[in-house]
Structure formats: structure tokens, C-alpha cells
């Protein structure tokens, strides 16, 4: 069984982004870039399924600028067997990525696609669900536990109010939540090995996909800052302030 794992190159989660002064976006020049944390969990899950003998091949895919090759190498250092880069300088939106992934699914015929539930840059939380819809496959989003059987998977999902368990037929799309697993650190020998793994580069046109953005960003601004608060000396003063100043008790 083949598993496809889409990975996105994003601003590292530890970086506090700054909005550009001209309001056109956030400044990502000279900022540390990393694999989207949810995608790292997706790669780890796929590699574990391979180690457990359930999957036979793990293919990592990234759509975006040439530097996404680094993200694919990271995925291969965790254990993906090969990488596919769909290279474009166009600002890719979730629908366009879902269409590129659909074209790759038609070509590669994976049984499972494991996506991160959302990317921490655009916070869209759309691509996995969109791919699933375009393929006409079932979906199990926000997964905290995945068990793959023959021709089906049982997935526990994190939902408002608790957990839900679904049984889905394969092929299917699964999206990862934080508690699905803890991704391993790539070891130096594995990082070296990853450099030799095959990496294929395609263009959106090779897949026959129009990636023109549907949404135009008119401006990007910083949210209103909270005004600095006060420090209180003890609980008595805190209660007094909450009752008489903030009037919330």
C-alpha cells in the first residue's frame, strides 16, 4: 500500500511574524522556515505504518517554490521513500493545492493520503477535505488515532466536546491533529541518506492544473494590541480590581 503525504514549507512555529509596513503581507525574508508541524506528524504516521508493515511506500509531496525541496528532504530524513515537488512561484491557495494533489493521486494511486489538518501560516484547514471531495473519497479529519485494516481504516477524531471514531473505506484522506504521534528527530545518517533519495520535479502545467488564486489579499494589518495591564500585589487586590474596576465578578 502506498501512502502520499503532502508537506508544506512554512515560517517556523517559534517565529513571531511581522506585518510588512506597506500592508501587503507578512515579512518572511530571512525568517526560519520549517515543515508545517501538522505535516511532520503526517509524515511520522505514514512512516510508522510502513515500519509496521502496513504500507510499502511513503511518497512526500510539496507544492510551491524551489526551496520546498528542503522540506521534502526533511520528510525523507524522517523516512519517506521519495519526494515530488510541484514547483511554482504562484501563491498557492488550498483549492489549487487540492487540485494538484488530485492529479498526483490519479497518477500515483495511493490508498491513503495523510495531510496535516491545517498549515500554521494561512490557518485555512481546507486542503485535506478538498482533496477528499475532489477524489470522491471518504475523509477522517483531526485524527488522534489511526488503525489501518484491509480495505478500511478506523480513525479516532478530535471534535468539539470529545472524540469520535469513524470507519472509512480506502482509499481515503486522513488529516492529523496534534496528539496523533510525536514525530522523531531525523538523525544525521538519515539526513545524509535522504539526500540520495529520488526527488522528482513537476510544474502545475505538467499536471494540467490551473493554480490561479481565487482570493485576492487586499491588505494585511497587525491586530489591535492589548493595552498593557497592571500587576497586582495579592489575591485581595485582584478580587477588588475584578469587582470594582473590571466589573466582571
Amino acid at each position: 500500500m502506498k501512502i502520499l503525504v503532502p508537506v508544506k514549507r512554512v515560517v517556523d512555529y517559534n517565529v513571531k511574524v511581522r506585518v510588512k509596513s506597506d500592508g501587503t503581507g507578512v515579512d518572511i525574508a530571512n525568517v526560519k522556515m520549517s515543515m508545517n508541524p501538522f505535516d511532520e506528524i503526517a509524515v511520522e504516521e505514514a512512516v510508522r505504518l510502513k515500519e509496521a508493515g502496513v504500507a510499502t511506500e511513503v511518497v512526500a509531496v510539496s507544492c510551491g517554490v524551489g526551496a520546498c525541496q528542503e522540506t521534502l528532504r526533511t520528510a525523507m530524513a524522517i523516512g519517506a521513500d521519495r519526494g515530488i515537488l510541484v514547483e511554482t512561484d504562484v501563491d498557492l491557495q488550498p483549492l489549487a493545492v487540492a487540485k494538484l494533489l488530485k492529479a498526483l493521486c490519479d497518477k500515483e494511486q495511493p490508498q491513503i493520503v495523510i495531510c496535516g489538518k491545517q498549515a500554521i501560516d494561512d490557518d485555512a484547514n481546507q486542503t485535506g477535505q478538498m482533496l477528499s471531495a475532489l477524489m470522491g473519497w471518504p475523509q477522517a479529519t483531526f485524527a488522534s488515532k489511526v488503525a489501518v485494516g484491509s480495505g478500511k481504516a478506523t480513525v479516532t477524531r478530535e471534535i468539539d466536546g470529545g472524540l469520535e471514531t469513524l470507519e472509512i473505506s480506502l482509499p481515503a484522506v486522513i488529516t492529523t491533529d496534534l496528539r496523533l504521534n510525536e514525530p522523531r528527530y531525523a538523525t544525521l545518517p538519515n539526513i545524509m541518506k535522504a539526500k540520495k533519495k529520488p526527488l522528482e520535479t513537476l510544474k502545475p502545467a505538467d499536471l494540467g492544473v490551473d493554480v490561479t488564486p481565487r482570493l485576492t489579499t487586499l491588505k494585511v494589518v497587525e491586530p489591535a494590541k492589548r493595552s498593557a495591564g497592571v500587576m497586582v500585589a495579592d489575591v485581595a487586590q485582584l478580587v477588588e480590581k475584578l469587582k470594582n474596576e473590571a466589573k466582571v465578578l
Binding site: V11, K16, V17, V19, V26, I120, D121, D122, D123, R214, L215, T216, T217, L218, K219, V220, V221, E222, P223
Partner: peptide, 16 residues
């Protein structure tokens, strides 16, 4: 809509 964990607010226009 907020992006980057709410550290920026984007105004977007839809052509759909």
C-alpha cells in the same frame, strides 16, 4: 480573517 495564529489580519476579496 486572521492568519499566522492571529498575529496578522488579512482582508481578502473573493472572485467566486
Amino acid at each position: 480573517r486572521p492568519i499566522y495564529a492571529g498575529n496578522a489580519l488579512a482582508t481578502v476579496k473573493s472572485a467566486d
